[in-house]
């Protein structure tokens, strides 16, 4: 990795857009891929495909991190984003009975305004960024992103924030659990009705009498 960095530093004078180094070319290509995946994931009508294209986009991004010599972050990205977050999203899709096939109404009525706002934001940001950083170059040679370097700096001066982060994760965990509990306590009333008839709670109803039928079906929804 440091050879590349050294090459970078050797020829500082002849820099310019017109003579991109190898890393830049790869970066651009992967960037285009990421962008394409993102656009498709946002634009596609099939919801599951959208999630899968998200995976592609995030994966490409991980490669970009590697190109930027942020090796540890890249793997963390792959691990957590691709691993857990997208999976969670897929679960979310399944749990909310998202239609598998092509669903015509994937976009809300607001899409033209949204497109307009997005394009305006893109235009503004790009012009701003290009105007601001036209003459600045990243010196990739420093190889600062390796696990050892990142780990050293993390455990030297970022310990406290991470502890706070862990508390946050815990809170999020509990919150998620509380929210998504399926409200057992919420339906005691119908069950009280059953108690009067003397049948034990939760016994598999052998004979599907209409009275028994309604409370159980109610319990499932």
């Amino acid at each position: 990795m440091n050879i590349l960095a050294a090459a970078g530093s050797l020829a500082p004078a002849t820099r310019g857009f017109l003579s991109p180094t190898g890393a830049e070319i790869v970066f651009v290509l992967v960037g285009l891929a990421v962008l394409g995946a993102a656009v498709i994931s946002v634009g596609t009508r099939q919801l599951v495909h959208a999630a899968l294209w998200l995976v592609v986009a995030l994966g490409g991004l991980a490669i970009e991190f590697l190109l930027l010599t942020a090796e540890f972050v890249a793997w963390v990205q792959v691990l957590i984003y691709l691993g857990s977050v997208v999976v969670l999203v897929l679960f979310g899709l399944m749990l909310t009975k998202a239609p598998i096939g092509r669903s015509p109404d994937a976009d809300s009525g607001n899409r033209w305004v949204a497109l307009l706002v997005a394009l305006a934001a893109a235009g503004t940001l790009v012009t701003l960024v290009v105007d601001a950083f036209r003459t600045s170059w990243i010196d990739l040679g420093a190889g600062g992103g390796s696990a050892s370097v990142t780990g050293a700096s993390l455990f030297r001066n970022w310990v406290l924030p991470f502890e706070a982060l862990s508390v946050l994760l815990l809170a999020a965990l509990i919150g998620a659990i509380v929210l998504s509990r399926s409200r057992q306590a919420a339906a005691p009333k119908p069950r009280a009705g059953r108690l009067r008839t003397g049948k034990p709670v939760g016994a598999a109803p052998a004979a599907k009498s209409p009275a028994a039928q309604s409370p159980s079906s109610e319990r499932e929804s």
Binding site: S108, N110, V113, A114, L116, V117, A120, A121
Partner: peptide
Amino acid sequence: NAQTYLSALLA
């Protein structure tokens, strides 16, 4: 509709 509010905000 939350999205219209958000669009207005971002605009």
